[in-house]
Computed example of a mutant assay.
Amino acid sequence: MSDTNSNKENKEGSVSPNIKDGWMIRRCTVYDDEYSECTSIKGRFNQYFIFGKSLDCSQWKKDSLNCYKWVEENDVNAGKELVASEKARREQRLLPHYKNDVWEKRESPPEDWNKPLPEHMLKEYENTYLNIKSKELRGEIPPSFDPSIKNCTIL
Rank of each mutant, 00 (worst) to 15 (best):
E126A: 11
K123Q: 11
R89A: 09
A78P: 10
K115H: 09
E140D: 12
P109V: 10
A84W: 03
E86A: 09
E111L: 09
R138K: 13
P142Y: 00
A88P: 01
N74A: 15
K133N: 09
E72P: 09
R89L: 04
E124G: 04
D101T: 08
E107W: 07
E104D: 14
K115V: 15
K150C: 05
G79V: 00
Y125H: 08
V102C: 04
A84Q: 14
L137T: 14
K133P: 06
E107A: 08
H120I: 08
A88Y: 08
R93Q: 09
E136F: 02
F145Y: 08
E72G: 08
P118C: 05
E140K: 00
K115I: 11
K150A: 15
I149G: 10
P147S: 05
E124P: 07
H120C: 11
E107R: 01
K105E: 11
F145S: 14
E86I: 03
Y129M: 15
S148R: 05
P147G: 05
L82H: 02
N127S: 13
V83A: 03
S144N: 07
E73V: 11
P110Y: 04
A78Y: 05
E104L: 12
L130E: 15
P110H: 04
E91W: 08
Y98Q: 02
Y125S: 12
S144Y: 02
L117S: 07
E140P: 05
E86K: 07
H97Y: 14
A88E: 07
W113P: 07
E126C: 08
S108K: 11
E104T: 12
E119M: 03
S134R: 09
G79S: 02
L95P: 10
K115Q: 14
N114A: 03
L117Y: 07
K105S: 07
L130R: 11
P116G: 03
K80F: 02
K87S: 01
K87T: 01
V76Q: 10
L130C: 12
E86S: 09
L117R: 04
N74W: 12
E136K: 00
E119Y: 00
T128I: 01
G139Y: 02
Y125A: 09
N100G: 03
E119N: 14
N114I: 01
S144H: 02
H97E: 07
F145W: 11
M121Y: 14
E73T: 11
K135N: 05
P110L: 05
A78R: 04
E73D: 13
Y129F: 15
K150S: 15
P147K: 02
H120T: 11
P96F: 00
L82K: 00
R106M: 15
P110R: 03
R138Y: 06
E119K: 04
K80D: 05
N127P: 08
M121V: 14
E119C: 04
E136S: 01
L130Q: 12
E86D: 05
E104C: 11
R93D: 13
R89W: 06
R89E: 06
R93A: 06
P143L: 05
K150G: 12
N100Y: 02
K133Y: 15
N100C: 01
N131L: 12
S108A: 14
L82S: 04
S144Q: 06
K150Y: 10
L122D: 14
D75Y: 03
N127F: 06
N77V: 09
T128W: 02
N127A: 13
K99F: 08
L137I: 11
R138Q: 10
N114C: 03
N77Y: 06
